[in-house]
Design a binder for these strands. Sequence first.
RNA 1: GUGGGUGUAGCUCAACGGCAGAGCGUCGCACUGUGACUGCGGAUGUUGAGGGUUCGAAACCCUUCACCCACCCCA
Length: 425
Amino acid sequence: MANKQTVKSVKGTRDYYPEEMAIRTWLYDNMRSVSEEFGFQEYEGPILETLDLYASKSGEEIVEKQSYVFEDRSGEKITLRPELTPSLARMVAKKQGQLTFPLRWWSFGPFWRYERPQKGRTREFFQWNIDMIGEDSAGADAELVIIAASFLKRVGLNADEVQIKVNSRELMDAETNKLGLDDEARAKAFQWIDRKDKLKEDAWLNYGKELGFSEVQMQGIQDLINNKDLWKNSETLTEVFKIVEAYGMSDYISFDPSIIRGLLYYTGTVFEAWDTAGDFRALFGGGRYDNLVGDVGGQKVGAVGFACGDLVIKLLLDKLGRLPEVGSTPADVYITVFDQDTFTESLGLAKEIRQAGIKVTSHLKIEKLGKQFKYADRIGARYALVLGPDEIASGMVNLKNLQDGDQKQISRESLISELKKFLEG
RNA sequence: GUGGGUGUAGCUCAACGGCAGAGCGUCGCACUGUGACUGCGGAUGUUGAGGGUUCGAAACCCUUCACCCACCCCA
């Protein structure tokens, strides 16, 4: 026993013990209710996809370096999905003629990326995906941003603690175009912008030179990302901020020209949520991807959505002491067994209470009552019942409140209504 | 893929190169119809693994593995 090694788990995976699972479920419940309140439907794609689905659409890093790829028995290259959006695009393309647009769909499930695990990053992670397909208007972009803000609000994060930073690829393309940057230079410019918060001023400027920018170009780019009013040059962003304002969510949302995002398929509005203290990575990220459905064989339709991992938001809530107290007990009521003669009585009582919809566990063998009470206490049961010869003779049940130690005899008839009253109150 | 840190009991951690320990937890008893509190008592280690230096290694050196952190990228 002691000298036996536990079989190791796969690197980068997490075990969800009941406490952690309760938190994941709580997050899932919040994702579900926000999604459904906005009229989105749940769906799910396969966990295995062909490598082709991601090739050249997700970005080289994700496909070449971070995907779990293996050959199945026929020799086909299969990958464990690193993200959901391409699957969604494929599903839409496949049934495009039968669907009513705009679609409002959401999903929550596991994803894999083969990278070095670290704070807020694991190889297997769970992600909420929510997308609107078949709608080009800024109203769609705005709705997704509003949903994102609503979710943050719902899990108890306020606008001082988190901010959704919004930008537009289109806008940045146009503006860098004005600076005379070609596609290659633009890619480098985005790379440079992306690095601004990570490097010190000097190092960042040096990095700009290394990328081959002239002083004039660097000044131009800096002017762009320092321009807090740059969004006014974008009709879409102007509209998005107007709608967000009208919905009363502007406090969660701000314009940030340095938000670019790495995935290749984004075409318009892009956004990310960050903790304002800057302790963690992005809580979620998303944007508009108008070409993806067309790229996987469908007709081109507008699409916008975002993905939110379960890990960073959990770290943030934990830091703020905002994680809910959930799943503290598997059974509200614990039924002890007194002796062999009364065992079946206890079992019958359990059945009765269970049928009333109350969570009940009963002891499985005759043991000292002390041990039984101890177990009931350990699992967090709120009440313990004793059904001994005295109680059976008098048609009573001994009901003990494990929280305050109160104990009383009550009749079998009134037990269930009493329990319900106590548990609800 | 690159760089750094840490591995000692179930957990958190101590131990100058000189007998491997504490707290918490766990188990038993006090308590033959009652948990949490209290008191008493018990159990648990290939010091991550392999090699080397040494009279002597948890400690020093090498190798390896695991985990953590940062970079890269991203949820």
